[in-house]
């Protein structure tokens, strides 16, 4: 079997090498890829969409339909993690911490449930006290990371960035919170339900903007038809439409990242540790 695999790999390699034979030269300005469509985008994109960043114009407008499905892929990945890993079973044994004294109670009878509140709180076996220095540094860093994430989303039209990148940065700030404190701190701040709703809502904003364009009489995702309902300069309507979908992408990516993280690290149990 290993030998067979080796032969297949060699054959594929030879095939790929054979294919490179007639590649255009490296950086050739006359290669088909740089004369056929690229010229059109370079000449017309800024004029047609009023967005100075050509990459964003192609990604969110000319080929916005692809990007919508890529957002759906991210949503789908988050949902798949939730669907497969989330463990709704009751825990067999529970641990509680008496907050004022930090004494830990181990309750083996699954039927006995302590009321949690000011005196007792849930915890689990993997819990480790978090480090003061790490906590403090992260507490200072997280707001700046989040501001930067918002900037990346909002500035996608003008500079490198956009919904995917901004969403990943925002999501990682939340994951940093879970790492530096513990998972429960994160889940307490942003409930699982909220994350689930945001993930779907983000993609829904994208598809919804497209559907509104359709309801206004244009083709799907044709932002120019949004002029009557969006205030502001009608010349910039395509840029505004792109900003709208980028915000949707950002929300969906953030939520999906966090869903994937919390379900994978806690094997779907959403324990306190980690």
């Amino acid at each position: 079997m290993k030998f067979l695999g080796f032969i297949v790999v060699c054959l594929t390699g030879t095939l790929l090498l054979y294919g490179t034979g007639e590649f255009p030269d490296w950086g050739d300005p006359d290669s088909p890829a740089s004369i056929h469509l690229s010229n059109y985008y370079i000449e017309k994109a800024v004029e047609e969409t009023q967005v100075p960043n050509l990459v964003t114009a192609v990604l969110a407008d000319y080929r916005g339909f692809d990007t919508m499905f890529e957002t759906a892929v991210v949503f789908c990945a988050g949902l798949a993690c939730f669907l497969l890993l989330r463990d709704f079973r009751e825990k067999k044994e529970r641990f509680y911490r008496h907050t004022p004294t930090r004494v830990i109670l181990h309750v083996k009878d699954s039927k006995k449930v302590l009321k949690t509140g000011k005196e007792f709180e849930h915890m689990d076996k993997d819990w480790v006290p978090s480090d003061l220095i790490i906590r403090t540094v992260c507490r200072i860093l997280i707001p700046f990371i989040q501001i930067y994430a918002l900037y990346v989303v909002a500035h996608g039209d003008f500079s490198p960035g956009g919904g995917f990148q901004g969403g990943v940065i925002f999501g990682s700030s939340l994951i940093l919170l879970a790492i530096s404190y513990d998972l429960k701190t994160l889940v307490r701040r942003i409930k699982e339900k909220v994350l689930g709703i945001y993930a779907a809502l983000g993609v829904l904003i994208y598809v919804g903007i497209g559907a509104i364009c359709m309801a206004m009489g244009g083709n799907f995702l044709d932002y120019s038809k949004l002029v009557p309902i969006v205030p502001g300069d009608p010349h910039h309507i395509r840029a505004l439409g792109m900003l709208g979908v980028e915000i949707g992408v950002g929300i969906a990516v953030t939520a999906a990242m966090v869903i994937i993280y919390i379900n994978i690290v806690s094997e779907g149990k959403h324990d306190e540790g980690l």
Binding site: H36, L37, Y40, Y41, D61, Y62, R63, G64, F65, D66, G218, N219, F220, L221, D222, Y223, S224
Partner: peptide, 12 residues
């Protein structure tokens, strides 16, 4: 059907 109203080779 032109997605986003762009003519074929440019749009989808």
């Amino acid at each position: 059907y032109k997605m986003a109203g762009w003519a074929p080779p440019m749009g989808i």
